[in-house]
Amino acid sequence: MTTYPGTGPVIHDPSTLPVDDNVNAYTFCVELKGSEWFLQKGKMIAYYGSMEFNGIGHGRLDRLVRTSFHSPLHASDWVVASGSGKMLLADRAFDVNSFDLEEGNLTIRSGNLLAFQPSLALKQSIVPGFLTLIGTGKFVAASNGPVVFMEPPIRVDPQALVGWADCPSPCHHYDHGYMTGLMGGLRALTGMGGASGEEHQFEFVGAGTVLLQSSEALMAEQAAGAVPNQAGVPGGGGAPGHQGQQAGAPRLPGQLGDLQRRFGL
């Protein structure tokens, strides 16, 4: 075998690549031995061995999809990798990390989830734009900067939130002393008078873990699928990606409706 001394970085081959672990901070290696993994479309960068990538609508995979895939409406964004060999996953040079769940549950922003083992069940979260994984197994998530784990009670910046495990209390928190009243309205509307941009947070209480990315640059949202248009279903009736714009949801500053509500008009 030819060698290339001084090539600098480590040269990997199937025997030196890790099994279901990171190759570097941005690349993850999955070993398939006749097993299957779900992955987001187009995140495979290279593989050794023989593998097949099939869209979720593939007939042979129907049973697998029924047991571990419960978001039928965004199935077209996912593929099933099957075969044997080692596969490298990466996403636009973002940090990738794997997490293990043991009889647990974790809710994650839809754009951050890269891949998961079929022993986990993927479901749409009640929170629009988020997906929930339930069961035992490994999944791979991307984040903009390394992930930090925090214990509730905690208030986090919406753009830094990646997901949360085992704590069922995500709620909005507004800095009311700062945001209400005439001055608050003007601040939010104009950005003048010292709006800090941190008047709104997500709040978590109870036992569990909150995952944050160390940057406030959001990953591109993946459509998490529309939900049935029924009374009592949050985000119901909204087209995918346009959820959370009902009355009561925070509106963009500059919309008159906000100001009217503040002034009690």
């Binding site: 970085p9 480590v10 040269i11 990997h12 570097n24 960068i45 290279a46 050794y48 593998m51 490298l88």
Partner: peptide
């Protein structure tokens, strides 16, 4: 990531 290709390990790349 630098990947070695040899006769027993062909490689497929995106």
């Amino acid at each position: 990531v630098v990947l070695r290709v040899s006769s027993q390990y062909p490689l497929t790349v995106d």
